[in-house]
Design a protein around this nucleic acid. Structure first.
Lengths: 151, 151
DNA sequence: TATAATTCAATTGTACTCAATCGATTGGAC
DNA sequence: GTCCAATCGATTGAGTACAATTGAATTATA
């Protein structure tokens, strides 16, 4: 191997960890589409609803902390979910800066329709329970490893 | 645990594999930004250049197969890289449907400036070599497992 | 208590992602 | 040789992501 080839070896696509991470993430999200289309949600809207089903009446800030998303992404997304009738947005009485999100009846009812999605997706993922567990552990270590979001 | 709680248990965000995958992918791409800003590339442009540094004169189709991206993403991205002077786009002589991409001098030279990026990123990733290897293996199994892109 | 710093969501602008469609080109069947 | 299906890239439109800025509200400070 020449000197220049050795220098560029690290730049080969198959030597990157970021690339399969990026490609897998998009692939898995794609697999959700047919199931989420059926309940009128996108993937990002789905994980947002997931947080709300666990913890209703949450601020945009706390929602963003759970999902690692900022208001630039969440504001239009929450407006869209509001337009679909799944939630209401209102300012906090105690602190007018804070915008709270609360599920509507329809938003709460959607949980029933969504309940089968995880099992349906599991059927599309070709991974053993051990591999899934290992993947989960490593991803969370990476995610919470150095810091919350970056650096 | 009530019956309804059990039914909704699978919908909890921390029980999903997709979410840390999605969040990690975005987090890692974010880490690239300062290094890629310095060489005037976005993350997607960077992995595209990576393929071109390995295999110059490639069709949009083959590029898409390597990156799991379609022309809807690649066409504007390649036009942007062309506008920056890193590559040229031209139709194949043999088949006018095929658009080939070829690096310019500047595009080739950029490889030298990019050569340090992988090592710089590695310093930001809090993962042992064993974990990185395990993650890599599982991600590629997931990626190539059932099919190339979806279903 | 004025004012300065901070917090919060919204906005703006750039850049993807992807489904769906289109139009041109090509290769195959007859 | 002429339709016919397939292939390829471009386009369109909706929906994120995210850096950077703005403006209102709140808190801390002098």
């Amino acid at each position: 191997m020449s000197m220049s080839e050795a220098r560029y070896e690290g730049l080969r696509l198959e030597h990157q960890l970021c690339f399969p991470l990026y490609a897998c993430s998009r692939m898995v999200i794609k697999k959700y589409r047919p199931f989420l289309d059926a309940i009128n949600l996108t993937y990002t809207q789905y994980i947002t609803m997931m947080v709300l089903w666990e913890e209703d009446c949450i601020s945009v800030r706390d929602l963003g902390n759970r999902l690692f998303l900022d208001s630039g992404t969440l504001t239009p997304l929450l407006k869209s979910l509001e337009a679909k009738g799944f939630l209401r947005r209102y300012r906090s009485q105690e602190d007018e800066r804070v915008l709270l999100v609360q599920l509507t009846e329809e938003g709460l009812a959607l949980r029933e329709a969504a309940a089968d999605v995880p099992a349906q997706i599991a059927g599309c993922i070709a991974l053993s329970p051990e591999e899934a567990q290992a993947l989960y552990g490593i991803l969370y270590k990476l995610l919470l490893g150095s810091d919350t979001t970056d650096e």
